[in-house]
Structures are given as structure tokens and as C-alpha cells.
């Protein structure tokens, strides 16, 4: 498989959120504004990229029996780094993402890629896989967030977009709005898939 496929599969064919249904918890929780979504996406991408590279580098030396604890230690280390750096340099983002920054440790996208891909593939491929999956995850989060922020608070990236006559649909920035929007996106992706295979 050409290496470019490994990159682009993360957007559509194997999009972690819409297709693999991984990492749904942060997608639901921090997609209430585009800023949060991009911040979370960037943090998760960084962790994914680093953990994929390290896991791939040491894949031959890791005993099979303890690979999961080792992967978790590696992931947790990078998450802590992100947490510390964010607290020091982007305190507002750190505050609005709150508990979901440390929770990147248990984001299944990251352990999933370490186990399913980086543990079996070369460093270059793992790097591209991490980058593609990370951007795909950010894309999914942002897609949900754009809909929710625009309709739920009439803003985009914190700026008022909709005119003053627009009545925000409060439901959309509340948790049910996350489920509704995500469900509709997953449906859209499946529908596109069906159309492609039957055509």
C-alpha cells in the first residue's frame, strides 16, 4: 500500500470517529466549540504521533506479554507532557478542556493505533499513520463542533456569526446536541459509503 494511502485513510475510509467509532468520548464532550475541538485535536494528534513513533521504534524489543502496559506508559508520558505544556503556555485552553486533557490517555484512538498499526509497522509508516489519524480525528471533532457552535451559540471560533435575529438552539451545545450531531454525521458517512458501493 502506498504511503499516501496511510495518510489519507484517516480522513474518510478509516476515519477514527465516523468510521471506526473510536474516541467518541472526547468527540462528544469537547465539541461544543470549534476552539476546544481544534485544541483537543492538536493535543491528541501530538500524543498519537509521538506514541506511534516510539512504539514503532521499540516494537522488536517489547515482549508481547507486557506490550499493553508499556504502550500505556508511553502514552501517559506524552499526555502528561501535553498537560504540563498546555497549563504553562495555553492556560485558557487548558482550563476549558479541563479533565479531558489527562483523559487523552484512555482515548482509544491512540492505544488502538499503537496496537493495530505502530506495533507492526515501520517508523515512517507509523508516523504517517499517526499524522493522518490525528488530523482525521481533529477533522471529525471540528465538523461536529462547527455545527454545534454555529447553531447552538450562533458563533464560530468565539466570534458571533449569525445575525441578531438568530435564536440559538441551546440544545445543541448541551450533551444531547453532541449525540444528535455525531449520530447524523455517522449516518452521513454510512450513506455516502452505501451509495459508493451500490453505484
Amino acid at each position: 500500500m502506498p504511503i499516501s494511502n496511510e495518510f489519507f485513510k484517516g480522513f474518510y475510509k478509516e476515519n477514527p470517529v465516523f468510521k471506526l467509532a473510536l474516541g467518541l468520548c472526547p468527540t462528544l464532550a469537547v465539541s461544543n466549540s470549534l476552539q476546544n475541538a481544534v485544541g483537543m485535536g492538536a493535543a491528541a494528534t501530538f500524543v498519537l504521533l509521538c506514541s506511534n513513533v516510539i512504539v514503532s521504534l521499540i516494537r522488536k524489543g517489547v515482549p508481547k506479554k507486557i506490550r499493553i502496559p508499556i504502550y500505556i506508559v508511553i502514552i501517559a508520558t506524552f499526555v502528561t507532557i501535553v498537560d504540563l505544556v498546555m497549563a504553562g503556555f495555553a492556560p485558557d485552553l487548558h482550563k476549558s478542556l479541563g479533565i479531558f486533557v489527562p483523559l487523552i490517555v484512555v482515548n482509544c484512538v491512540i492505544l488502538g493505533r499503537a496496537e493495530a498499526f505502530a506495533g507492526k509497522n515501520s517508523v515512517a509508516y507509523s508516523f504517517i499513520d499517526g499524522l493522518g489519524m490525528g488530523i482525521g480525528f481533529t477533522f471529525a471533532l471540528s465538523a461536529v463542533a462547527v455545527v454545534r457552535e454555529l447553531l447552538g451559540s450562533g458563533k464560530l471560533w468565539g466570534f458571533p456569526i449569525m445575525g441578531s435575529g438568530f435564536e440559538p438552539v441551546l440544545l445543541l451545545i448541551l450533551p444531547p446536541g453532541a449525540f444528535l450531531t455525531l449520530g447524523l454525521f455517522v449516518g452521513l458517512f454510512n450513506w455516502l459509503d452505501n451509495k459508493r458501493t451500490t453505484a
Binding site: T80, I81, L84, V85, A87, G88, F89, P91
Partner: peptide
């Protein structure tokens, strides 16, 4: 990492 970020976090 902590050595680098600690003063920054304290400043925040």
C-alpha cells in the same frame, strides 16, 4: 519537562 514548565505554570 517539569523543570521547563514549572516556572511558566507558576507565572500563570
Amino acid at each position: 519537562v517539569n523543570v521547563i514548565t514549572k516556572p511558566k505554570i507558576e507565572e500563570q
